[in-house]
Design a protein around this nucleic acid. Structure first.
Lengths: 332, 332
DNA sequence: TAACGATGAGACAACGTTGTCACGAAATAT
DNA sequence: ATATTTCGTGACAACGTTGTCTCATCGTTA
């Protein structure tokens, strides 16, 4: 900046004024400064600016996701970016990989970079442990899962209601022997989905004990093996609900291997690309990552702008998408 | 930092020394400072540090992708993150959406944040227009496409060779009436793939004029319509090569609608989830985003560390994955 | 005992900005 | 004609750090 000032023959404060579009600069000098800055290819140093500037905004936020490569996460990422980029806010994105150590380290990294806010998918048992006291007043929005041990906004899917809808759908098609395939119950969303599914069955008079419940399924392969085992049992289920993308894939594989895709009904939680191209098309409870991302961004911006209302949890409804696999009749 | 110093009863420089693990601090004072900093939940301000620090690293880089929500892009993102996070480097990720204006604006945004380097997928015709002179010395690595008008490292897939392999594969299965479905030839990768495909056919004695070439296909729908049109023609192709993910999806849809999935061979560029679950499985030329990302990260780190060798283009080989759709015999 | 080097610690300036204030000149009001 | 306001501009301190330098203390050696 000193160089620009020297070249234009003005004081540095005048350059600062021009670069920030502040008033009180004559058109003549403005042009002179602009020309000098272009000649030197000068660009304001945001970090130095926010150091001095009151309010001290860095126009950047931190985003913590299970993995940036996970399609569900990356759609949330995209929606956040779209909303935030209108305000010139840049996004630091990082992947957690279910590792609480990483969660802690990444939060610290964001804090050290003085982000204006954070959006995170929590994994540690309690976030009080992960988020230092001092950042109580740092705008934070949790997504997908609600925070524990800390008061903050959250944007989540209606997991229990969505799973209940899946149950009702399968019941409506005459199924009474059902199976639940789920992720590990350590995860709040997985617990909620199980609860919603089983409670709905309970209300229809189907005791939980008659439902095949398989949990702790974290990847395609474990889900595939679990599905094969359950389908090979004496009284196999006539319908399966899988609580998550990868689990759905595993079940699909097992059904295909056993040539049972058209015999056993399937409803999966989470939509995915090409679900309609399968044979039959896969009926799913779709989440709306773009709405979750947008809502999270809006809440974060509101907090950054000073909204200090009580923290709230926002629920984004899921949606049943009928494609064939969930409408197969029971076959005994 | 002043507060920590006051609480510990030392000078601020001593606190700085402790926080940076510099030598020359007695264990006793070190403990006192550490305790004070924990009590106040103090954390170094990286921005202020890099302002003063010589070398002036911010430990952050910028990443420009077609879209963070694009699976291919997000896997590159992930690989980059994995390599860079070992060095404590954070990633600003942003989406381009084929918009040269955005490209320019985002590069400026990164520059203003004084990133240590950038990894980008260029879209503008020339990057000289987009990248200011002054950042000549900013480490930059281009991915997926080579830069124009600027000398820099690039990491790309062997697009022409991969497409040629697809052509050879189809020829090997007896096809002589082929179709090429491609993205807009504005994009370097699309041009390369077309060239590779057609040249290979030419070498086999199949004149380009007999190949149905449809280009400018940017999404599933346009590809679907184009495929329907070509397949309804007098002498429909017995095999199709689609040069990109979305185009492949469109062709798959058209084939399914026409009940021709088992009659017309298909090889797609880009692998995708569940390709093996289709009926038949989709044969593809797979790129290796994780290798591209890792290599790009390594090159960027080398540049950041001062490597000033001549810029090079690194080619990551693609791979033919056989799944059924590409091995169907011609049916006249 | 005097001279010396090693060690721990702080004072101070500087990094690139912006907020505050002051100043001179021009424009307006009295 | 003089007093007052407005306008354009720059000097200076401060933001939170770190590099450089200096200084006091202590133990060692001649």
């Amino acid at each position: 900046m000193r160089h620009v000032a020297a070249l234009a023959g003005v004081g540095i404060k005048t350059v600062s004024r021009v670069m920030n579009d502040e008033p009180g600069v004559s058109e003549a000098t403005r042009q002179r400064v602009l020309q000098a800055s272009q000649q030197l290819n000068y660009q304001l140093d945001m970090a130095a600016g926010s150091l001095r500037r009151s309010g001290r905004q860095t126009l950047s936020i931190g985003l913590l996701l299970p993995s940036v490569a996970n399609p569900f996460s990356s759609e949330i990422h995209r929606a956040l970016e779209d909303t935030l980029s209108e305000r010139g806010i840049a996004v630091f994105a990082a992947s957690l990989d279910d590792n609480p150590e990483r969660e802690k380290a990444l939060v610290a990294a964001f804090l050290g970079r003085r982000v204006d806010g954070m959006v995170l998918t929590p994994i540690a048992r309690s976030q009080a442990y992960v988020i230092p006291e001092h950042s109580r007043d740092l705008p934070m929005v949790f997504i997908d899962r609600e925070p524990v041990g800390i008061e903050a906004d959250a944007v989540v899917t209606d997991n229990a209601a969505g799973a209940a809808r899946a149950a009702a759908h399968l019941l409506g098609h005459g199924h009474t022997r059902l199976a639940y395939f789920g992720d590990t119950p350590d995860i709040q969303t997985a617990r909620e989905r199980r609860r919603g599914f089983l409670e709905q069955l309970g209300q229809a008079g189907i005791p939980t004990s008659t439902v095949s419940v398989r949990e702790g399924l974290r990847d395609v392969e474990s889900a595939r093996l679990a599905a094969r085992a359950v389908l090979a049992s004496d009284e196999p289920p006539t319908a399966i609900f899988s609580s998550q993308n990868l689990v759905t894939f595993g079940v699909m594989r097992a059904l295909k291997e056993l040539d049972a895709s058209r015999r056993v009904a399937l409803v999966g939680f989470d939509d995915f690309a090409l679900a309609d191209m399968m044979d039959p098309g896969i009926t799913v409870i779709a989440q709306h990552p773009e709405r979750i991302g947008r809502l999270a961004a809006e809440r974060l911006l509101a907090r950054i702008d000073g909204d200090d209302g009580a923290p709230r949890t926002y629920v984004v409804p899921s949606e049943l998408i009928v494609r064939g696999s969930g409408e197969l009749p029971p076959s005994y």
